[in-house]
Amino acid sequence: ATNIVSKVKWYNSTKNFGFIEQDNGGKDVFVHKSAVDAAGLHSLEEGQDVIFDLEEKQGKAYAVNLRIK
Rank of each mutant, 00 (worst) to 15 (best):
A1Q: 13
A1W: 11
A1D: 09
T2A: 10
T2I: 13
T2Y: 13
T2H: 12
T2R: 14
T2N: 11
N3F: 06
N3K: 07
N3Y: 07
N3E: 07
I4N: 07
I4F: 07
I4V: 11
V5Q: 12
V5S: 12
V5E: 11
V5G: 08
V5F: 10
V5H: 14
S6V: 04
S6F: 06
S6Q: 05
S6L: 05
S6H: 05
K7C: 06
K7G: 02
K7H: 11
K7L: 04
V8A: 01
V8N: 01
K9P: 02
K9Q: 03
K9C: 04
K9W: 00
K9V: 05
W10S: 03
W10E: 01
W10C: 08
Y11L: 01
N12T: 06
N12G: 04
N12P: 02
S13H: 12
S13V: 13
S13N: 11
S13P: 14
S13C: 14
T14H: 13
T14R: 13
T14E: 12
T14F: 13
T14N: 12
T14C: 14
T14Q: 13
T14W: 12
K15A: 08
K15H: 08
K15W: 11
K15Q: 08
K15F: 11
N16I: 02
N16W: 08
N16G: 15
N16A: 12
F17D: 01
F17L: 03
F17G: 02
F17M: 05
F17N: 02
F17K: 01
F17Y: 15
F17C: 03
G18C: 03
G18Y: 03
G18F: 03
G18R: 00
F19A: 02
F19N: 01
F19R: 02
F19E: 01
F19L: 04
I20L: 15
I20E: 02
I20G: 01
I20M: 08
E21P: 04
E21L: 15
E21G: 13
E21F: 15
E21M: 15
Q22K: 12
Q22L: 13
Q22E: 07
Q22T: 13
Q22Y: 15
Q22I: 11
D23N: 14
D23W: 15
D23G: 15
D23C: 15
D23S: 15
N24D: 11
N24I: 10
N24S: 11
N24E: 10
N24A: 11
G25S: 09
G25N: 11
G25H: 09
G25E: 08
G26K: 12
G26V: 09
G26M: 12
G26N: 10
G26I: 09
K27L: 09
K27H: 10
K27C: 09
K27F: 10
K27I: 09
K27V: 10
K27T: 09
D28A: 06
D28G: 07
D28C: 06
D28T: 04
D28L: 07
D28V: 05
D28H: 06
D28P: 07
V29P: 00
V29R: 03
V29F: 10
F30K: 01
F30A: 02
V31C: 02
V31E: 01
V31W: 02
H32W: 03
H32Y: 05
H32L: 04
K33A: 10
K33C: 08
K33M: 06
K33H: 09
K33G: 10
K33N: 04
S34Q: 10
S34P: 02
S34R: 10
A35G: 03
A35M: 07
V36E: 01
V36H: 00
V36I: 11
V36L: 15
V36P: 00
D37P: 02
D37C: 15
D37V: 15
D37W: 14
D37K: 14
D37F: 14
D37R: 14
A38W: 07
A38S: 09
A38H: 08
A38P: 03
A38N: 08
A38I: 09
A38E: 09
A38C: 09
A39V: 07
A39L: 08
A39G: 06
A39F: 03
G40K: 08
G40T: 04
G40Y: 06
G40A: 06
L41D: 03
L41N: 03
L41R: 05
L41F: 10
L41P: 02
H42Y: 12
H42F: 12
H42P: 12
H42K: 13
H42C: 14
S43N: 12
S43K: 12
L44R: 02
L44P: 01
L44F: 06
L44A: 00
E45M: 13
E45H: 15
E45T: 13
E45V: 14
E45Y: 15
E45S: 13
E46Q: 15
E46T: 15
E46M: 14
E46C: 13
E46S: 15
G47P: 01
G47M: 05
G47N: 07
G47V: 02
Q48A: 09
Q48K: 05
Q48R: 05
Q48V: 09
D49E: 15
D49G: 11
D49A: 13
D49I: 15
D49T: 15
V50S: 01
V50K: 00
V50H: 01
V50W: 01
V50C: 03
V50N: 01
V50E: 01
V50D: 00
I51S: 06
I51L: 09
I51A: 06
I51C: 10
I51G: 04
I51E: 09
F52M: 04
F52P: 00
F52T: 00
F52C: 01
F52K: 00
D53N: 06
D53Y: 04
D53Q: 05
D53M: 04
D53C: 04
L54E: 03
L54K: 07
L54V: 13
L54P: 00
L54I: 15
E55Y: 14
E55N: 08
E55K: 11
E55D: 07
E55L: 13
E55R: 11
E55T: 09
E56M: 14
E56K: 12
E56A: 09
E56I: 15
E56G: 07
E56R: 12
K57V: 11
K57P: 03
K57W: 12
K57N: 11
K57R: 13
K57A: 11
Q58L: 12
Q58S: 12
Q58A: 13
G59S: 05
G59W: 04
G59E: 06
G59K: 06
G59I: 01
G59D: 08
K60A: 08
K60W: 10
K60Q: 09
A61R: 15
A61C: 13
A61P: 07
A61I: 15
A61T: 14
A61N: 10
Y62K: 09
Y62C: 08
Y62E: 08
Y62D: 04
Y62L: 07
A63C: 04
A63S: 01
A63G: 05
A63T: 02
A63Q: 03
A63L: 04
A63P: 03
V64M: 06
V64H: 05
V64I: 11
V64Q: 05
V64C: 07
N65Q: 03
N65M: 03
N65P: 00
N65H: 08
N65S: 04
N65G: 03
L66T: 01
L66W: 00
L66N: 00
L66F: 00
L66H: 01
R67E: 06
R67M: 06
R67Q: 09
I68S: 09
I68K: 06
I68C: 08
I68D: 06
K69S: 12
K69L: 15
K69R: 12
K69E: 11
